[in-house]
Amino acid sequence: MKKIIIGENIVKSFGEGDEHRNVLDGVSVEINEGEFVAVMGPSGSGKSTLMFSLSGNDGVDDGKVVFDGKDLSTVGENELSDIRRTKMGFIFQQPTMLKNLNILDNIILPSMRGNGKNTAKISEKARALMKRVGIAELETRDITQVSGGQLQRAGICRALMSSPKIIFGDEPTGALNSKSAHEIMDIFSEINADGTAIMLVTHDAKVAARTERILFMRDGIIVSELKIPKFDGTDIDHRVEEVTAKMLEIGI
């Protein structure tokens, strides 16, 4: 299977003098096309830093990141921005949206760059995505007029507008109640089933249990991983038990 991301001996540090530390300390990781991966670990273990480094949002101090065959350290900032905009999707715990725009306009805004003459086509795709995730009736709502779960669905639509090769999610269910979190994970499963790779950073064993490979981090390194079959919708309790048992085994 083709590898969409290859990270080799990634080092990322912060601070100076006595405060200097490696948040990533020689991490190597590969993600295949269409793979569903979770990253778990205690706060400060390097989970989010790894995600930002693999996506080119953060430069690395040593090692390299290859995305879709291209070494990200060799491209200029404009090309890197285009790669992130057209081949990657990003979903965060709190979607960043503009208060002066309605839901539909927030979804299409990033896609307007370089496509200003195709507004109708872009809007049509956004409406199709909104229908897919169950928020078709909310397109004219302000972002303050929808629930957290609905806003996260809008964030997913925005991430999918460019038909990305991979979606990165940093605690995408962290601010949601259990029902909304379950529904968002159902959407992620559908997206992944269509062939889009997904990498989620999470503290939630139930979220991680919906993926197929879990990387466990501590002190800036990957200390273990767990591979489980694709989720078929029927064995979540057993899968959560596997994840929590692994967490206890490695002490995180």
Rank of each mutant, 00 (worst) to 15 (best):
K206P: 02
V207K: 05
V207Q: 03
V207H: 00
A208S: 10
A208G: 09
A208T: 10
R210W: 04
T211R: 02
T211L: 04
T211W: 00
T211H: 02
T211G: 03
E212S: 15
E212F: 05
E212A: 13
E212D: 15
E212N: 14
R213Y: 04
R213L: 01
R213A: 06
R213I: 03
I214M: 03
I214D: 01
I214Q: 01
I214T: 06
L215Y: 15
L215K: 09
L215I: 15
L215M: 15
F216E: 05
F216H: 04
M217D: 12
M217T: 10
R218C: 09
R218K: 15
D219P: 04
G220H: 00
G220M: 04
G220T: 12
G220W: 06
I221L: 15
I221W: 08
I222M: 08
I222C: 06
I222H: 07
I222S: 05
V223M: 06
V223G: 09
V223S: 04
S224K: 15
S224W: 11
S224V: 13
S224I: 12
E225L: 02
E225M: 05
E225T: 07
L226E: 02
L226P: 01
L226C: 08
K227E: 11
K227L: 07
K227P: 02
K227R: 14
I228K: 07
I228W: 00
K230V: 15
K230S: 14
F231W: 11
F231T: 06
D232Q: 12
G233S: 15
G233V: 14
G233W: 13
T234H: 14
D235G: 13
D235L: 08
D235A: 08
D237L: 11
D237E: 14
D237T: 08
D237R: 05
D237K: 10
D237A: 12
H238C: 05
H238P: 01
H238Y: 12
H238V: 12
H238I: 11
H238W: 10
H238T: 13
R239M: 04
R239C: 05
R239I: 08
R239E: 03
R239K: 05
V240R: 10
V240N: 06
E241D: 14
E241L: 12
E241M: 15
E241R: 12
E242R: 11
E242C: 07
E242Y: 08
E242I: 05
V243H: 02
V243P: 00
V243Q: 03
T244Y: 06
T244F: 02
T244E: 11
A245S: 06
A245Q: 12
A245I: 04
A245N: 09
A245T: 13
K246V: 10
K246N: 03
K246L: 04
K246Q: 04
K246A: 03
